[in-house]
Every structure is written in structure tokens, then in C-alpha cells.
């Protein structure tokens, strides 16, 4: 489809998506390597979930890449050229998602297998990849980052400004969802419904000592239910973003 081809050229023809994607992969692999390399026998055996410890960190970088792919179009006015070429705005924005979301997934795949691979090289015994829970930690990063990219795109369409969209995403993912658990009594219950908490539950929940969020025991869903909930939130946000984009002036 021609709109998708155009979005592919757009994403690949500036340097920043390449850089942000590379940074996301390097951060996850690098930090995993540091943790596994400094693990001493006195700390016990290396938990398999170490492979996914820094998934959120890399995901935030990929989400910035995704949201900037939209906000930079508003910043530089090319969104108007985009809508000139494809006046059906839903189609134009879904074409962008059709490029950015798979890219986020592939970058997640590289990060997931890369961090598992580097951990396995350092500590082969504790990092054998066999159970479903272990596969989820490694390959699941791709799914989580892809869904995260959908949310980031929707936020970009709604906010339209890079600084605002990036700030909102960082505060939401890194602060709000973690700090809400501090509210006495209700905090943990609210937290169990939050999308990125569910994303983490999908990656490392039900998989033993995963270093997961403190409230993991109160989760409403199992790992795959959490992923579905996370994806559902993303789809709803994207639907809202598309409706808003269709209604307002470009």
C-alpha cells in the first residue's frame, strides 16, 4: 500500500529513529551484561528474569521514537503534506502505525534475545531457555514494545508536541504507574489495572522470582490476560486519537 511505503521512507530517511532504536537495544543488552557480570555466587544463582529487568528502560526509548515520528510531523508541518496525499486520516495514521509498530517489535526482539544472549554467554547454566515463562521474558519484549509503540503513537497524535508527548510518556511509564502503589489500601488495586504494570506482569509475572513490581500478587490477570489488557488499552487510546485527528484541523 502506497501510504505504508511513504511512511517507511519517512521513518528510514532521518537519522533519529535509527539512533533511538540502537540506543534502546544497547541499553537493555548493556545493563543486563553489567548485572550478570557482577553477580557473585554469594548472591545466589542468576535469576532468568534478569534478561527482562531493563525491558521498560528500552521500551521508553522506543516509545519516544514512536511518538516523535508523529510529533515531528506536526512540528515541521509535514503532517499536512501527509494528509494532502492521503486525505483519509485514519488510513494515513494507521499506515504510520503499520511501519512504526513492527519496527518497535523487531527492535524489542533484538533487545530481548540480545540481553538473553549476553547473559547466557556470561552465565550459561542459569540462562537456559526452555519453559514458556522463560520464552515470554525473552521474546515477549517484542510484543510489549510493539504495544507500547501504539500507545506512544496515540499520545503523539493527541498531544502533537514533542516535548509534551515525551514528558507525558516518561512521567506515565516511569513515575505514575510505580508511585500509585504508594497510596495506602487502594494503591495496589489501582496499580493492578494500569497498562504498563500489566506489561511487566506479562513479561515476568508468574515466572518465579522475576524482580517484578511489588504488587504482583494482586494482579487481576495472568500473563497473557495482562498482555491482552495492555493491548486493549492501546487500541482504545489509538481509536480516540484517530477520532480526534479526523475531527480537528490539521
Amino acid at each position: 500500500m502506497s501510504a505504508v511505503a511513504a511512511e517507511r521512507i519517512k521513518l528510514m530517511s532521518t537519522r533519529s529513529p535509527w539512533w533511538t532504536s540502537a540506543v534502546a537495544v544497547v541499553i537493555v543488552i548493556g545493563l543486563t551484561a553489567v548485572v550478570v557480570a557482577t553477580w557473585s555466587p554469594a548472591d545466589g544463582s542468576v535469576p532468568f528474569a534478569v534478561s527482562g529487568y531493563f525491558a521498560t528502560f528500552g521500551m521508553v526509548v522506543v516509545m519516544v521514537m514512536a511518538t516523535v515520528s508523529v510529533t515531528s510531523e506536526y512540528r515541521f508541518g509535514t503532517i499536512r503534506t501527509t494528509f494532502q496525499a492521503v486525505p483519509n486520516r485514519t488510513a494515513a495514521l494507521l499506515a504510520k502505525a503499520a511501519v512504526v509498530v513492527p519496527v518497535a517489535g523487531v527492535v524489542g526482539l533484538l533487545a530481548g534475545f540480545g540481553s538473553w544472549g549476553v547473559a547466557w554467554l556470561i552465565s550459561p547454566t542459569s540462562m537456559s531457555l526452555s519453559t514458556g515463562a522463560e520464552w515470554r521474558v525473552v521474546a515477549g519484549i517484542a510484543l510489549v514494545w510493539a504495544v507500547g509503540a501504539v500507545i506512544a503513537l496515540a499520545v503523539g497524535v493527541l498531544v502533537r508536541q514533542t516535548a509534551g508527548a515525551v514528558t507525558l510518556l516518561l512521567v506515565w511509564v516511569l513515575l505514575v504507574e510505580n508511585l500509585i502503589g504508594l497510596i495506602p489500601r487502594v494503591g495496589a488495586d489501582i496499580q493492578s489495572w494500569l497498562p504498563f504494570v500489566n506489561a511487566t506482569n506479562f513479561l515476568t509475572g508468574g515466572g518465579g522470582d522475576a524482580g517484578a513490581v511489588p504488587s504482583m500478587s494482586t494482579m487481576h490477570f495472568g500473563p497473557w490476560g495482562s498482555l491482552a489488557w495492555f493491548a486493549g488499552v492501546a487500541v482504545v487510546l489509538m481509536a480516540i486519537a484517530l477520532a480526534v485527528a479526523n475531527r480537528r484541523d490539521a
Binding site: 510531523e73 515541521f76 508541518g77 499536512r80
Partner: peptide, 12 residues
């Protein structure tokens, strides 16, 4: 149409 010549990504 050319509505605004600045509607380009500066790094492309």
C-alpha cells in the same frame, strides 16, 4: 499545492 515552503523535515 505549495502552502508553506517550510513544511519539510529539516534532516531529510
Amino acid at each position: 499545492a505549495l502552502l508553506d515552503a517550510k513544511w519539510v523535515h529539516p534532516n531529510r
